[in-house]
Design a protein around this nucleic acid. Sequence first.
DNA 1: CGATTATCCTGTGCGC
DNA 2: TGCGCACAGGATAATC
Length: 278
Amino acid sequence: LPELPEVETLRGDLAHVYVGRRLLRVVVTGRRTVRRHDPALLGQLEGLVLTSVGRLGKYLLLEWDDGQVLVAHLRMSGQMLSAQPGSAPLPHTHAVFVFSEVGELRFVDPRTFGELFVAERAGDNRVPGRAVKEIAHLGPDALELEERYLASALAGRRAPLKSLLVDQRVLAGIGNIYADEICFDARTRPDRPGGSLSRAQVRRLKTSVGAVLSAAIAGKGSSLRDQQYRDLYGQAGLYQAQHKVYGRSGEPCLRCGRAIERVMFGARSAYMCGACQH
DNA sequence: CGATTATCCTGTGCGC
DNA sequence: TGCGCACAGGATAATC
């Protein structure tokens, strides 16, 4: 399940391989992959040179030399894979981008929740994605989080902290796995009302957001048992070995030894230690 | 605002 | 060994 660390890992690899290369051809075969506009619009990118690869939250922003932006979201099962032209495509390959010199970029997505669309940049482009109106509702990127903003975003909120952390309008980039890991690192219960955190707890939470996400990026993201996250080269991430709570229901807390529990709220679950998270 | 439910979808892994 | 089904959850919308 790609969240910020996985998307950031992919962003770096995409930039490394494809920036400066010319897009020769685009073929979209997925019926649902481009759904905000006519899939044929992707054809407008043919002949352009990729100038940068940005990221806002879990959205990838591939910018071209005429100002267009190809926006991509992997959702649950999307993958972007480099491939040699002529090699056998994986099942569920929905789009293929053929580049000069460096081969193909393939969009593979079994569950078809992922999407691609072309946007026009408009206005402020200092922060990647901010000039794309389709994702204007996103809060600040979780890696750019400021303590003052976090404090104001949580103030007065009765919703569970975890619900706020995974709300992309509040903060962009955090999903189910890292919300649990961040709450554990901050020693804060995920089911606490967001507005109940003290100033010191907000500060610690802010630190944990940065620490957990940075460590996960260093570990090239998390690949769970379903292996749905793969990097550009088809490799699994490494950070799952460092998960402290996610998926560890019943196993001992690495801090205090108490069994990790799984608590439900709404239709979603959270993993936490009932002894050292307050 | 918040809580809840549903929708999209396929691979996996469990119980029987 | 095989079948059926619950489950996984990111984003969004609808309803109360």
